[in-house]
Design a protein around this nucleic acid. Structure first.
Lengths: 234, 234
DNA sequence: CCCAAAACAAGAGCACTGCTCTCGCAATGT
DNA sequence: ACATTGCGAGAGCAGTGCTCTTGTTTTGGG
């Protein structure tokens, strides 16, 4: 009759390793993540860690899924707390600011998800469902704006045949179907949001933009207007 | 009377190391760049490399500057070959496609410049001038569009006081001055272009967008129209 | 022309990494 | 009660960035 059962102990140890890994990740970044250092802190010898995570990459995968889910939680929570769900502009801003806020608070995790891929590491399909939650939030808003019949706020050129085919992948994920022009605008908004955050976090706006939050807020407002979610002011 | 003088030999060796490093960088990425492996290939013992580059980070800096300059060359060359320099839409597309093409051809180098910062490495000021060439191409186009008095193609909300202050850094780099609204639109275009490339290269568009080039072309056309460089079609 | 000074290549060595293998011990379930 | 399995510890391999010493070669001034 051990104080902790074998299964319980395994769960505890796995969690301890992952938590310590998460802390190290936030401190030194993904490339410098050391299995030995984690083992030391958990109080194990390095080889024992391999009983729980077959390789460093498997630990990395677990951390990636954890980060995607945390960001997904933040995004979905922000979306859910909007008082009037029919106000798509507010929901869009809430989502964008949730991503921005989480990225600022967890820069290394953001870099792990949306920065350079770790060399020699290919994210397995396990990560896809968690990763899809964030993009899913955008897609659902796009569907809602289509359903509401909102007109795009910025003039948008018609989509030609080749580009129509290129969008087949996203189109399959949209129900009800969204017009190509609206799809393109939403993809652009997606690129703008993540591009902005990446440029900001990776230091390319340093000394150019003095107040990141003020500027990001303006950009999201502008995007919401371009998408037809809100009227352009002025 | 040596066949190669000491100074000549030093220059040759430095170049050989940097070239080999560049090749390794393209193969394994920045984080996995090994000084020892480079030394082996050049035919030196690892400690000898330190006579030419005091540390791995210094070699990395040299490679970063080289990459920024190569991208800068590509961008400026693309801009210069536009037949009619007053056609800002064509120039914008040329620049955007030059960046996109270079990034596709040199994904690891792009990741080094615009992906996650290498942990523990801080880019010295040496890299700034080379890095500024790319953003400078955007800024110069923004100035030209202001000078030409082009109206923005997409409705743009007026910039409030806080946001005006936030833009002080970019404003200082613009001569002649550009209106805040135009500046914001150009910053958004900048974010969209790099965001798009990063999302594409780092695998986030996989299976969503089937033809990257077709889609990117449409996006840049759209951006050019939003910026007022070209008429919206349709 | 000669010789001190500087530059250099090579090697050993330190502390670290991911990962494998073997060894014993302890919990498990039949 | 015992064979099976899970697990921690340790040694070891091949690799890393970087430092220090040792001996050699090139250089430039007296």
């Amino acid at each position: 009759m051990p104080s902790t059962s074998r299964a319980q102990n395994r769960a505890d140890q796995t969690r301890a390793i992952q938590e310590t890994g998460r802390r190290h990740l936030a401190e030194v970044g993904p490339a410098a993540l050391s299995l030995r250092a984690i083992a030391r802190e958990v109080g194990m010898v390095s080889s024992a860690v391999y009983r729980y995570f077959p390789s460093r990459d498997d630990l990395l995968t677990a951390l990636i899924v954890e980060a995607y889910d945390e960001l997904g939680d933040a995004v979905e929570a922000a979306d859910a707390t909007v008082a009037d769900p029919t106000d798509l502009a507010v929901r869009f801003r809430a989502i964008a600011h949730a991503i921005h806020g989480w990225a600022r608070a967890n820069p290394h995790e953001y870099a792990l998800l949306y920065g350079s891929p770790v060399p020699g590491y290919a994210a397995p399909d396990t990560t896809v469902p968690s990763a899809a939650r964030v993009t899913g939030a955008f897609l659902r808003l796009a569907e809602a704006s289509e359903r509401a019949g909102l007109a795009l706020g910025a003039p948008t050129s018609p989509v030609a045949g080749g580009e129509h085919d290129a969008l087949a992948g996203v189109r399959a994920a949209l129900d009800p179907p969204v017009t190509d022009e609206r799809t393109v605008r939403w993809l652009m908004a997606w690129s703008t949001v993540f591009g902005h955050i990446s440029l900001e976090l990776f230091g390319h706006m340093y000394r150019g933009i003095l107040d990141y939050d003020a500027h990001f807020a303006h950009v999201t407002d502008q995007l919401a207007a371009d998408l037809g979610l809100a009227r352009h002011v002025g």
